[in-house]
Write a protein that binds this DNA or RNA. Structure first.
Lengths: 153, 153
DNA sequence: CTCTATTTAATTGCGTACAATTAAATAAAA
DNA sequence: TTTTATTTAATTGTACGCAATTAAATAGAG
């Protein structure tokens, strides 16, 4: 880590963020052939993952799970509604909330997706211990960044 | 890792790709306040990183460094040209190539960027060993995915 | 109860990402 | 040399991602 000059830290190869950014895109690309078969994008797929687990949720909560805001979710959910996988309706209790509910067709889709994690896992080719280490480090970062409004700017 | 049911692997919390995708976005957000000060986006910033190192490069090589294609780079490079940080000219040797060359103003910009890696590093808050481990794992993944046309689909 | 503040989703606008196509230039083959 | 194939950047179209604004609904204060 001895710096040759004051610009050393600005080199692409010395960034941690860059391989993070690049690998995230690459992994999404690994999903593409499998998701194309279901006519889903990656973001639609992770949205359906939440729907498969929760069955019903509002947009705000969905955004908290996915780290996405309504600007991204609103058009995406409209597409999933058009495909027939979810319904969108204002909550009767609080009309500000939009309830998203999975349909029977959405539930069926899960059957076609069930092998995707294993297939993509084969493309990534990390040892189980490596994958677990990576998992832990990534979530540590995420939690640190979310809590750290105390980031020393 | 004992699976309760056949859908266990489809849960968001059991994905490796999701924290990768989420943390990459979060890190880019950490950069935003610092990059806003330079009127650069994250993608423009990593492009300038390559330009600071290489001074001159063509679009294809640039894309190989950044894992981006001309569909992304062409409009981005036009913006950097408008800002005065680079020039874009067809190579005289091979007119198919577009040579991108950094300008004196582009070189100057480096001075304003020099503290950004350290500032963002503070926001990420990983121990040095953790950061190094993460770095290695991410590049291992990237190289594996790039080589692995032998991915068993 | 009324007025104000807050919460929530939708909308708008900009900047990526990237697949697919196009067009120009060069290289390779016949 | 002429034709064909390859290489390269640009263009086009779709889908995010997100900041900022808007509009509607609810909660809270007086």
């Amino acid at each position: 880590m001895a710096k040759k000059n004051k610009y050393e830290a600005l080199k692409l190869e010395n960034q941690l963020c860059f391989p993070l950014y690049a690998s995230a895109k690459e992994v999404v690309r690994q999903y593409k052939p499998f998701l194309d078969a279901l006519d889903l994008t990656y973001t639609q797929y992770i949205t359906m993952m939440v729907m498969w687990e929760k069955k019903e949720i509002n947009v705000k909560e969905l955004g908290e799970y996915l780290y996405l805001d309504s600007g991204t979710l609103t058009p995406l959910l409209k597409k999933l509604e058009t495909k027939g996988y979810i319904t969108r309706n204002r909550s009767s209790k609080d009309e500000r909330h939009l309830d998203v509910v999975i349909t029977p067709l959405g539930v069926e889709l899960r059957e076609q997706a069930v092998d995707i994690p294993q297939k993509v896992g084969q493309c990534i080719c990390l040892e189980p211990e490596e994958a677990q280490m990576l998992y832990k480090l990534l979530y540590k970062m995420i939690h640190q960044m979310n809590n750290a409004n105390g980031c020393k700017n």
